[in-house]
């Protein structure tokens, strides 16, 4: 038999607030177990919410700011030939970064 303070599971206002202990029969076990499950679920939900909020905060903290990503404020063209085609049609100048190396990709930041 499970002994438990009544007020924990009673709807507010229906049961006098007292620490009277009662003995519970089989017919009361189901709602109490449901109540316990609700408590456990609520605790798990709060833990989930807390870990999700913590992860979201970490993501925001680590993600580079727009200042750090300023290179993506430039109007990039994939290649010199594409840049020159666009330059002619848009009547705009081209800024070409020439890298004396075999590999690298300025647009991804690997150089």
């Amino acid at each position: 038999m499970l002994q438990i303070p009544r007020h924990l599971f009673a709807p507010a206002g229906l049961v006098p607030e007292m620490q009277e202990k009662i003995t519970l029969g089989e017919n009361l076990m189901r709602p109490i177990l449901c109540g316990l499950l609700t408590l456990v679920t609520t605790a798990a939900t709060l833990a989930d919410e807390s870990s999700v909020a913590r992860l979201a905060a970490k993501y925001r903290a680590i993600r580079p700011s727009d200042d750090k990503l300023a290179v993506y404020r430039l109007d990039w063209a994939e290649s010199l030939s594409i840049a020159q085609e666009r330059a002619q049609s848009e009547n705009r100048p081209v800024c070409l970064a020439v890298i004396h190396a075999r590999y690298g990709d300025l647009t991804s930041g690997h150089c």
Partner: peptide
């Protein structure tokens, strides 16, 4: 990238090319 440089580059179409001096397809 420095803010003044980013501003100065706004009118331009920007691109890059990499290679060596003995490459056959140097622009």
């Amino acid at each position: 990238m420095d803010g003044a440089v980013v501003r100065a580059l706004q009118p331009y179409i920007v691109t890059s090319w990499h290679g060596h001096r003995n490459d056959s397809d140097i622009p």
